[in-house]
Amino acid sequence: MSLALAFRDVGKRFGETRVLEAFDLEVPSGEKLAIIGPSGSGKSTVLRIAMALEGIDTGRVELMGETLWEGTRRPPERELRRLRLQAGMVFQHFNLFPHMSVLENIWRAPVDVAGIGREEAETRARELLSRVGLAERAEAMPDQLSGGQKQRVAIARALAMRPPVMLFDEVTSALDPEMVGEVLGVLRDLADQGGITMLLVTHEMQFAAEIADRVVFMDGGRVVEDGPPSQVIGAPVEPRTRAFLASVLRGADVRAD
């Protein structure tokens, strides 16, 4: 089976902070991978490296069979842009373009970057909007939307470029609790539909257990436990995974009180 993404012995530091150390991860095409772990363990960094927003220091990263990063070598700007088309990213804080309508947020990159005609791009944008349940908000400006709606638009925007790999970085963490469900619903549909490789960094253990094929628990810049959700979330083997899940569940209890 071909690999969508591969991290091979990757090291990454910010100044004195070692963020990733001897980090290895292989993601087969079409897999839905959940990444969990405590704050500061390097989860976002993994996604940002895969999105080519961040380089690495040692090792090698391959995206859809091509080398994205190798040591500190930085591919030329053009090459980087071509490789970026293989991945799309959805951010915790949406990062919608506030000066563009919802619809333009979605069609702008297909037109400017992929060179698709404006009319076709708008049609596709409307289709995507109805897929995320926002067909009637096409002409709205982002600041007129709720957090959940913004995040659904952000998902549609990333999908519009039809990347084979989608990266989701805690996409429900900035939302009010009553809006988490609508966004998870969109992710679930996407997962069910198949065909796209999905990496989800999430604190929603229940959700991760439901939709992921595989779960990776990270701590201190390494993969500590790696297996099916039934193992990593259901019956973790590693003491650190257990301790983490216990603290997450305690957190959930506290919130439920």
Partner: peptide, 10 residues
Amino acid sequence: EAAASLGFSP
């Protein structure tokens, strides 16, 4: 970062 992730040139 959103612009870069969508493939926009500088």
